[in-house]
């Protein structure tokens, strides 16, 4: 069962190129979905469409199995949001800011103290939020999103500006919320390394196209598949011919022969053939593609 289902989302700004091109999003209930892409890839536009901040042009959005168009208020009552940057009234304190949102969500007054403690801002007292550091503002923005204990959190780059400790704290907090309350979390980032330890599902978007969507395990399996063997010889072209004769798909990259990981016996046989044909082999090594390079490869292609 999906918490968010978006079908064929397409969005254009005026007459220009499509910012989003036929995006299908499936975010499972209770998952932490990492929405990844470089700056300008279309992450924020997608999130704004999911929240009705941008007028939908094409496609269909269903959240909690309800049409966003028909049940927007009901959906938003159960959704916490953090889009692009924290939304704070600078002339008010952290508590006063939360009181404003509490009035709208009509939730318990004790929630204010609870979320301030959760994000580590309970001792800010009378300090106006305009005087907060970027990290503190970011935390308060997250506290606002959590205030009414939503079932769904939509967070657009919430750890921007946080120091490594702050990032870990927020990551732990989100994990805990997901585990203890079953909160579904959609979190965007331009860095896979930032969310790979947090998310259960991943969507990779590039130039308005969704290049990958699936579980983190599926992405990791892709990483395994992308692990190669690199062979450095004095004659790459002849070495490639030998490999091809063995029915192994290979390519030459910067003079190095690149082929998929094969069995040890096959490698040994290939090496023997190189030596027999007087090709000098300088190095045979495994090239391990980490998740970040898979991400970059996907977006490059």
């Amino acid at each position: 069962m999906n918490c968010i289902e978006a079908k064929a989302l397409t969005y254009h700004f005026s007459e220009g190129e499509a910012v989003l091109n036929n995006i299908d999003l499936n975010i499972p209930n209770g998952s932490i979905y990492g929405f990844l892409g470089a700056n300008g890839a279309g992450k924020t536009t997608t999130m704004k469409l999911l929240l009705g901040l941008l007028k939908k042009q094409q496609g269909d959005i269903r959240i909690f199995n309800q049409s966003l168009h028909e049940n927007r208020q009901n959906i938003l009552r159960r959704t916490g949001t953090f889009i692009e940057s924290p939304s704070l009234y600078g002339h008010l304190t952290a508590e006063e800011n939360l009181k404003i949102w509490r009035r709208i969500y009509q939730c318990s007054a004790s929630n204010i103290k609870e979320v301030l403690e959760l994000v580590g801002l309970s001792s800010t007292g009378k300090k106006k939020t305009a005087k907060f550091s970027l990290g503190m503002k970011q935390r308060l923005g997250i506290a606002i999103a959590l205030l009414h204990k939503p079932q769904l959190l939509i967070l657009d780059e919430p750890t921007n500006g946080l120091d490594p400790t702050g990032m870990i704290e927020i990551r732990d907090l989100l994990k805990r919320l997901n585990k203890e309350s079953g909160t579904t979390i959609l979190i965007s980032s331009h860095l896979l390394s930032e969310v790979e330890k947090l998310v259960t599902d991943v969507g990779i978007i590039h130039k308005g196209n969704l290049l990958f969507q699936g579980t983190m395990q599926a992405l990791q399996a892709r990483q395994q598949q992308a692990t190669n063997i690199s062979i450095d010889t004095n004659d790459g072209q002849r070495a490639l011919e030998i490999v091809s004769r063995n029915n192994i798909k290979a390519s030459l990259q910067n003079g190095q022969l690149i082929l998929p990981v094969t069995e040890r016996e096959v490698m040994s046989r290939l090496n023997e053939q190189f030596v027999n044909e007087q090709i000098e082999v300088y190095q045979i090594k495994i090239v391990n593609n980490d998740l970040e390079s898979i991400f970059i490869d996907l977006t490059k292609n």
Partner: peptide
């Protein structure tokens, strides 16, 4: 202009209000 100045329109428009 309070919402423009504080960049809060997006938060206000994602609250359950018409």
């Amino acid at each position: 202009q309070i919402e423009y100045r504080n960049n809060t329109w997006k938060q206000l428009h994602t609250t359950p209000q018409s």
